[in-house]
Design a protein around this nucleic acid. Structure first.
Lengths: 248, 248
DNA sequence: TATGGAGTTGTATAATACGCAATAGTTGCG
DNA sequence: CGCAACTATTGCGTATTATACAACTCCATA
């Protein structure tokens, strides 16, 4: 596991640039990485040469460059799951009136890779590229419950009073989700937001992703949850079938 | 302009991974960069360690990793222009029934950074992260005509018979766009697709981006173009006003 | 005008990434 | 079924290359 130091440092710089909402100065970068200013300067200049960083001409500080957007698109458009899922996401919005999302597993979190927005003016959008925890989101739970060899998170941080923080409770909860074929997030991640999601499975029945809907608790009343769940489950099933066909 | 070699090589590898739709092997990477296989292997391993590359367990080949999606989102969400533009994009879709797009200048090309889809089943979508040439798209022409110090492209490749390939013709065309306050793409980039776009300008009147609509030529008849142009111009003007206010 | 802070550049050193060669693992063909 | 050709990975000595230190420049501020 030989690691190229200067490449690793460059990647870390990109992450620092991404983490800070304000442009970052060379000195800060150098301090955070524990390297000299000169090294940081040259690394970030190299990033800038290739469009991965950008220098604010005024402040001489650096922020992320537009090249990362291109790479992201390249990855997303080459993802068969994403293409196949799109019509189902649209269908979900049409049938439920809520925003629909598609996520995959990345770094042991749920990575949102597509979204179709609801026409309602009050809606729950989650930008493409967002990472969310597995234990308190409907998409995350679907990935947990139906994924192959997905370990339970070590920590179960609480985001609202309803977040499940006990591993044993979560285990039972996931068991339930497996039985039902779908997972629910009942204001466990964000106040006033409920979600329903179901896994997209491959030919082995293991999750390669998850799709679901999110909406304000007002519209996603508990009485309507089972109806919505059925709609989501249908869509995820049909999408899973399509994905299995694609397997060579 | 000292460049860190191994970081540059790592970035180039990411671009190669992005360019190929199929996963790429170490040997190919090494050949294309003109370096040894061992170096390529170690570089791509480092990328993989940080989530910027992923190894297909079956073929041992590499593709882009999910980390780039995160970086992209981080960049896009921190872009004030994008937030401000969203309602105007929605408004454009509402008023014209066509897809609306937002682009900025990146690497002397038009980089699409947001999109709102039309509800019509026949629609012209351009994924976020797409790069398009400046000389034959409405958004690109807007950036060219109203940008500060944007050089005319050296080459004007033809994509359709209507593409403007003569620099002098383009110059006059841009002059016209400047006078009108908007730019048109009349099937110059893609058959059957017409676009109208106008610049988003800062307090100096220089373009920081452009918004516009794209639709099938059938619906975007030449008789309706001036109506649509007025709608786009209004939206871009209002958005420009908002962006000027934000300037400190 | 001086001063303190920023980022960039010059340079010698030594760490580091490099290429070569050998190994291990896989696919394909006879 | 076994050999051959190809793949990716690892060990290792060398020299390139990235590094840290320091000098320098550019700005803002006092």
């Amino acid at each position: 596991m030989a690691e190229i130091q200067s490449l690793a440092r460059g990647l870390k710089i990109m992450e620092l640039l991404a983490a800070d909402s304000e442009p970052v100065g060379i000195t800060d970068l150098a301090d955070e990485l524990g390297i000299d200013k000169s090294s940081a300067s040259r690394l970030v200049q190299t990033l800038a040469n290739y469009g991965y960083a950008e220098q604010d001409p005024q402040t001489r500080r650096y922020r992320l460059g537009p090249q990362v957007v291109r790479l992201s698109r390249s990855l997303l458009t080459r993802m068969p799951l994403r293409d196949e899922a799109k019509p189902f996401l649209r269908q979900l919005v049409e049938r439920t009136g809520e925003c629909a999302h598609l996520a995959i597993l990345a770094q042991n979190q749920a990575l949102y890779i597509d979204q179709v927005e609801s026409p309602a003016s009050l809606r729950v959008t989650t930008g493409v590229g967002t990472l969310a925890p597995l234990h308190c989101t409907a998409l995350g739970k679907s990935l947990l419950a139906f994924g192959a060899n997905v370990p339970l998170p070590d920590e179960l941080p609480a985001f609202t009073p309803r977040t499940i923080t006990n591993p044993e409770t979560l285990r039972i909860h996931l068991e339930e989700a497996r039985r039902q074929g779908y997972a629910i997030d009942d204001e466990e991640y964000e106040y006033g937001v409920r979600c329903i999601a179901a896994p997209v499975v491959d030919f082995r029945g293991k999750a390669i992703g998850a799709i679901g809907i999110s909406g304000p608790a007002g519209r996603m009343g508990l009485d309507r949850m089972s109806t919505f769940a059925e709609i989501v489950r249908q869509a995820s099933g049909a999408l899973s079938d399509r994905m299995s066909f694609n397997r060579t």
